[in-house]
Amino acid sequence: MLEGKVKWSNSEKGFGFIEVEGQDDVFVHFSAIQGEGFKTLEEGQAVSFEIVEGNRGPQAANVTKEA
């Protein structure tokens, strides 16, 4: 699992980007967020995730919010 911080997200469009130190930003779709209820990410929020190869390149999977 990698750790990063949410660079920005748009809940209306359903995606955002995660900033990882020393690496390119990672695309995240809201379907990759683990948990119940409305899935949102806040700018600056710490997250853990895996990287998978998506249709348009690397993207985050199994995203969990850190406490």
Rank of each mutant, 00 (worst) to 15 (best):
H29K: 05
G54V: 04
V20Y: 06
F38V: 13
T64D: 04
M1I: 13
N55G: 10
G37T: 09
S11I: 14
V28A: 04
A60C: 04
D24T: 09
Q59W: 07
T64G: 05
V47S: 01
S11T: 13
V20H: 03
E66F: 15
W8M: 02
V47E: 01
E66Y: 15
E66I: 15
Q34C: 13
G57Y: 04
D25Q: 04
G14W: 09
E43P: 15
A46N: 11
S9K: 13
E42F: 12
E53R: 10
K39Y: 08
F49P: 00
S9D: 00
I18F: 02
K13V: 06
G14F: 10
Q59S: 05
A67S: 12
G22P: 02
A46L: 14
F30P: 01
F38K: 12
W8Y: 13
Q59H: 08
E50F: 13
Q59I: 09
I51D: 01
W8L: 02
N62C: 10
V28S: 01
G4Y: 04
A46W: 15
E19L: 11
E42C: 15
V63C: 04
D25G: 04
E36H: 11
D24E: 11
T40S: 11
S9G: 05
S11V: 14
E43L: 15
D25P: 06
V26P: 01
S48T: 13
M1P: 09
N10P: 00
F27C: 08
F15P: 00
F27D: 00
G54C: 10
I18M: 02
S48I: 13
V52S: 06
Q23R: 14
V52G: 03
F17V: 03
K39C: 11
E50C: 14
G4H: 01
K65T: 11
N55W: 15
A61R: 10
D25E: 04
N62Q: 06
E36N: 12
E36F: 11
N55M: 14
G44V: 02
G37R: 06
G44D: 03
R56P: 05
V6E: 00
K65A: 11
K39P: 10
W8N: 00
H29M: 07
K7H: 05
A61Q: 09
D25N: 07
E12S: 13
T64N: 10
E43F: 13
N62E: 04
E53G: 07
K65S: 09
E50M: 13
R56N: 09
F15D: 00
E42A: 11
K7R: 09
G16R: 01
F15E: 00
E12H: 11
